[in-house]
Design a protein around this nucleic acid. Structure first.
Lengths: 349, 349
DNA sequence: CCAACAAGTGAGAGCGCTCTCACGCCCCCC
DNA sequence: GGGGGGCGTGAGAGCGCTCTCACTTGTTGG
């Protein structure tokens, strides 16, 4: 019942079995360079036969590498976590790490008091690097990471003051601005002339960038008359927020004929408000979302939205971090990555 | 740039600084029993001053404890992972583990070939225990775990052949059968007399249990005439599945006046089919879901559903595992936990 | 033919910690 | 007053691994 997992063979045992020294077995186990093919094969057989698995604790004690990467998800609001987004990124990350035999340590931050502890933890050398998500504005973690020197890759462009000019900062972002621009340009191409925007919290660069893209698109000359002024409301990336934002917008300007929501969730909220007011989508008001989450394809009508390769972003983050970890003194450091965003046209526009 | 995280003080350094032996510092760091209060305080000061953090690799090398728990999510279908369910459970787990200074190793299984590797990994002593989710029928992991003797707690009652009688099996489940019974009883109380059910994949106990609950409720005498026969369709726990299942049901029996879907997702699919056929909800057909996920509250009409304390289940799983790990020879082993399910009545019934 | 060198292998130290054991001290009891 | 027991402390072994260094062999060039 108790599981006799202990009599695990050690390097020593394998060495004895294969009739070689510990050092040789170690060499074989770690790549096998500099060992005669014949011997190598013999060691491999012994490893197989005895079911040898290296003890990572012992290994990392001497190599000073833990073989683990922390994935830190700061979650001041519950919202963040019911988001399929993370799940998908995590998946990409997991795949990449698994290929490199690295472990994924999941660190969830819920309360402010967790911060200090986790900062300590991360700088204590328990992991080789960290992946961090959705930091808001000047998140304390950012500073901690910088001080500790822990190699870190951020999910989404960090937005703390001075982040743009910080050198060596690593992140994977999607082209939020370009995606938003596409969305709004699409609405204009459809003949919409009073296009509103519902933004997320502007202390996240993704929300700010999407808003910027909206402005970009409005400013682009396309032959049609310019929209008198931008129409902006804030929705906090939640469905409820989208609902009230849409209501506000209609209050401000009942003539609105299109709305670009900074997330599918907010778009779904907006849709509800429009339904309730008896406005038809897309006939009266066209709606475009952002993210292309599953529900986007199910909503009534199906949602035109902007898709990003979420899983790919996850694996890129991991890859970037691994490259950074493998960096040799002479090498050029890796650079941030910005992935493409693509408009998916469906029924709502 | 490179982060000079290395000159971390060791036990030795703290001992020297405090003028005591390594052993004493170790004692203080690990609970401080058997050390004079005065000395203890002095050691604590040194620890604080030098910023000492124990090297877990060294520690676990000798204690044979890793201080880590694997959370294994087998995910043959993508569906599983876009499910807010896991996210919430993970959160409960994370909270519990954090309190005990244990680490959460996330292990995602995507491909069949991952199984063997992960089985090896788990039995290799890299973690002290494992938490496993949503195993289908006779998942290979179950056998691996059993063989390796790795302490494990399952999320959801395991369903492999013989699992019921296996002693020492630990899991946390919700009262699926009771929840389903409540749902269907509620429909009958509302005067519905032709109640259909849309089930999930029956190789998962949760789906089977909910179906059993449906049958239970139909069999309960309540004064009203008995429904001639059960009406069952399968929906695979997806929205699309719910959609087609509902269509099949209406095909079979156009007189259906209520449907109990084994998940909110399937209920939302059913809702779409009903809409499309011009059937009104709840006037013509009442709908009840299961899970109480966010979208349940947003659908049109809002969905009557069965709620379970997902986050609580997560922390219970962790707690159960930790109790199991701390078990001393004489102690009574912990037992599985089944949490309550509660019907939430909303607009669709 | 021997020095110079490369390649393959083994011996041994040591990573930072825990834990057993022995030692010294003080208190108590006969 | 001496022996026994408890408590607090330190010395030292050893967890399983990697890595440096020295050694042995085989190969090459002068």
């Amino acid at each position: 019942m108790h599981g006799d997992r202990d009599p695990r063979p050690t390097l020593e045992a394998v060495a004895a079995h294969a009739g070689v020294s510990r050092a040789t077995v170690s060499r074989v186990v770690n790549g096998g360079r500099g060992v005669r093919e014949e011997l190598r094969e013999q060691v491999r057989r012994s490893v197989e036969l005895l079911g040898y698995v290296p003890n990572i604790a012992a290994r990392s004690l001497v190599t000073r590498r833990t073989g683990a990467v922390a994935v830190v998800i700061a979650e001041p609001e519950t919202r963040v976590f019911s988001d399929p987004f993370f799940a998908q990124q995590l998946r990409g990350i997991s795949r990449e790490l698994r290929e490199r035999d690295m472990q994924l340590l999941l660190v969830l931050i819920e309360q402010p008091k967790d911060y200090e502890r986790i900062g300590r933890y991360l700088s204590a050398g328990h992991v080789d690097g960290a992946l961090m998500f959705s930091l808001h504005g000047a998140d304390p973690l950012a500073a901690m990471v910088r001080e500790s020197g822990l190699p870190t890759v951020f999910g989404g462009r960090p937005g703390w003051p001075g982040a743009e000019t910080e050198s060596g900062l690593l992140y994977v972002d999607t082209d939020n601005r370009g995606g938003a621009r596409q969305a709004v340009a699409h609405l204009r191409a459809r003949g919409r002339r009073r296009i509103a925007v519902i933004t997320g919290p502007l202390d996240q660069t993704s929300a700010q960038d999407r808003l910027d893209g909206y402005h970009d698109a409005l400013a682009e000359p396309d032959g049609a008359p310019r929209q008198p002024s931008p129409l902006v409301a804030h929705g906090a990336f939640t469905a409820e927020g989208g609902e009230t934002a849409m209501a506000e917008l209609l209050e401000t300007d009942p003539e609105i004929d299109a709305v670009f929501a900074g997330s599918d969730l907010m778009a779904s909220g907006a849709l509800r408000t429009l339904h309730r007011r008896g406005l038809r989508v897309p006939e009266d008001v066209a709606v475009v979302g952002y993210d292309d989450l599953e529900p986007a394809a199910w909503s009534e009508p199906t949602l035109t939205t902007v898709r990003q390769d979420v899983e790919g972003m996850g694996s890129m983050m991991a890859e970037l971090l691994l490259r950074r970890l493998d960096l040799r003194p002479g090498d050029a450091p890796p650079a941030p990555v910005v992935t493409e965003a693509r408009l998916i046209v469906r029924g709502s526009s």
